[in-house]
Structures are given as C-alpha cells and as structure tokens.
C-alpha cells in the first residue's frame, strides 16, 4: 500500500476518523494550576483515570482502557528505570514525551496495518525550583502541545476549544487555592461533557454559554453514574513524591 501514496493518505484519514469517533464520548480531563501545585480532574466510571507516573509527574487520558494502561506502563517503566539509573531529578516530562511517548503514538497511528491506539493523553509536571510547571497533551497521532498554566483533553477539537474558552473567560488569578481550582476544573469539565453530548454539527454552531445552575445540573447528573476524580501534584507534600489523589472528603468539602 505504501507504493500507492493516495491510498496510504486515505487509509490514514480513515483511521483518524475512526479514532476520533471512538474518542468523541470520552469523559474530558481538565488540568489547572493552583497556589501549591497542579491539578488534573475528570469524572470516571469505576476505572481509575488519574495516575502517578513519577515524583513530579501525573498522567490522565481518554480512550480505550487497554491502550491507556499500556502507554501508562510504558512511561511509568521508563521513568522508573531512568530515575533509578540516574537520579530522580533527571526525569523530566520533555524527554519522556519526545523520546518515549510521542514516537510510540505516531508509530502506532501510521502503521496502518497494525492496531491503532485509541487515546489522548494529558500529563502534568510540577516544576522544580528552577523549572516551571508544564501541562503536555499528546494526541493519538503523536502531536504534542504544551502549556504552563492549563490544558484540557476532550473527545474532539470542538469540545476542547469550548472548554478552553470557558477556562480563559473564567480564569481567576493563578494564585487560586485548591478549592477554587477544583471548582474551575469541574465547571470546565461540565462544559466539555455538555458539548460531547451534542451532535457534532450542533456542538460547533451553538453557543457554549451555560448558566452556573445548568453547569451544576450537568455535574449532578453525571455524578449519579460516575465519580469525580482529582489528583494533585503538590509542592508542599512531604518527601520526594508530590502526587496524591484528593480524598472523597476533600471533594465533598470543595463542592459545598
């Protein structure tokens, strides 16, 4: 097939459509910073979706659970071995993304006879004293996007754009506390959820302005089937590992 360029491009396009279709209904993930670190938030149904990769790196993804697991283990194993062979300070998200994850994503996507990874990944790295916080999104085709202050992944680009709009419009200052960050992330998640439930054509044309009341209705409905999951990388954590999941108690408190 490779000696017929047109058919190869067509096959890639088909694959892109297929993967995007599979991802469309995935529960979005929101990443925001707060005064003591960074947070990843989503709503999950049974399966955990926010993970600790290394001392200062957390991961979340949407897609097929088996693909998420496989790629999560790839990056966790790589970071663990390198952190042991060198020093944990030598682990950084830039290298893990560019030398380990992105090539694996791209290779799977373009090997049109092999299986595709149905996945979009969002990673967060808590900056050391000299470095900066960084969110990194990796698309199923291996395209990487980074941002120091916020990031979202959703089923389609339209969903993501809608969520980003909400985030930038409501963005309180970067010094927000944990509770404010939690609420902002949750509201942004609800926007994404709403957009993913609309038909693709509607999602693009319609206004994404929602009343706060509507937003919390969406959240309440979603909580009947799933659970809010939030993980933080917190600079004030004792010891070298900075990751922890918020407890259900903390989540209930923040929802009040």
């Amino acid at each position: 097939m490779r000696d017929e360029p047109y058919r190869w491009i067509e096959a890639i396009q088909d694959r892109r459509d297929y993967i995007e279709d599979e991802l469309r209904l995935g529960s979005p993930v929101v990443g925001v910073t707060y005064d003591e670190g960074m947070m990843l938030l989503t709503l999950s149904k049974g399966q955990r979706k926010i993970f600790e990769v290394h001392d200062r790196i957390a991961l979340s993804a949407i897609g097929h659970p088996a693909d998420i697991e496989r790629l999560r283990m790839l990056v966790t194993d790589t970071a663990s071995v390198q952190g042991f062979q060198n020093a944990t300070e030598d682990i950084n998200l830039h290298r893990l993304t560019n030398y380990t994850l992105a090539p694996a994503f791209k290779q799977a996507f373009e090997s049109i006879v092999g299986e595709a990874y149905i996945i979009k990944m969002l990673l967060a790295e808590l900056g050391s004293t000299s470095g900066k916080n960084q969110f990194t999104g990796i698309n199923f085709d291996g395209i990487v996007r980074t941002d120091p202050s916020f990031a979202v992944i959703g089923g389609t680009e339209t969903i993501e754009t809608g969520m980003q709009k909400y985030l930038t419009a409501t963005k309180t200052d970067a010094d927000r506390d944990l509770t404010t960050a939690f609420q902002l992330a949750l509201e942004t998640w609800a926007i994404g959820k709403e957009l993913s439930s609309r038909e693709p054509e509607e999602a693009e044309s319609e206004d994404t302005q929602l009343e706060t009341k509507q937003i919390y209705q969406i959240i309440d409905t979603a909580r009947e089937e799933g659970e809010i999951e939030a993980g933080v990388l917190e600079a004030s954590q004792q010891g070298t590992s900075k990751f922890r999941l918020l407890t259900s108690q903390e989540i209930e408190e923040a929802l009040k």
Partner: peptide, 16 residues
C-alpha cells in the same frame, strides 16, 4: 536501600 525505595514507589505507581 535505593532499590528498596524505588521498588515500593514502583509498586504503588504501577499497581495503584
């Protein structure tokens, strides 16, 4: 000591 420390962390991270 180093292997031990990394083993415990690796178990927690991989096995949740």
């Amino acid at each position: 000591a180093r292997i031990l420390e990394h083993s415990f962390q690796y178990f927690r991270r991989s096995q949740l």
